[in-house]
């Protein structure tokens, strides 16, 4: 079984995505989806880093919900800043020291930071474990660091137990 399905979760995801893409549950498309789900993990195997195990999947849902809400709220606040006086913005590069020590989880964190408007992650330094971000308007950088660490990094650490 392990030889046939090296990554069961990835295969399941491909199958579901294929069903969503084709938007039809005819036997033919489902069969093609199943074939893709079997073949693609083999082809892409060299590119996959070993993701840590999901220790607490329930928190993942909470985090996903929190990120969605934050995206909406942050959009509104950034929209206000874009319309308002641009000169008064205080853009800044900020270094966020990380507690987590896993490349995969660090990537997830930097993606979340980029998706929530107002911050874009620029670099993950895996020697010093520092996340370099750029903030559109950050009068108080310590508060922003604290927010990122508490709202996103702490739950991620719990989810992946790293």
């Amino acid at each position: 079984m392990r030889h046939l399905l090296p990554r069961p979760a990835l295969s399941a995801l491909i199958f579901l995505l294929w069903a969503a893409l084709t938007n039809a549950a005819t036997p033919g498309t489902l069969l093609l989806g199943a074939l893709l789900a079997l073949a693609l993990p083999f082809v892409t195997r060299p590119f996959w880093s070993d993701a840590p195990r999901l220790a607490r999947p329930a928190i993942l849902l909470t985090l996903a919900l929190r990120v969605s809400i934050d995206i909406v709220l942050a959009n509104l606040s950034v929209a206000r800043r874009v319309i308002g006086p641009v000169k008064r913005l205080q853009p800044a590069f900020i270094e966020v020291p990380l507690d987590l020590r896993d490349p995969f989880v660090a990537t997830v964190l930097s993606s979340i930071v980029s998706l929530t408007p107002g911050t874009v992650s620029i670099d993950v330094d895996q020697e010093r474990w520092v996340l370099l971000i750029h903030a559109l308007d950050a009068p108080d950088s310590d508060a922003l660091i604290e927010k990122i660490k508490q709202r996103y990094e702490a739950p991620l650490k719990e989810i992946f137990a790293c």
Partner: peptide, 16 residues
Amino acid sequence: LPDFFTRLHGPTKATT
């Protein structure tokens, strides 16, 4: 917005 890094924030908003 004035420079490259602040401009990067615009498209992230549009996509999300």
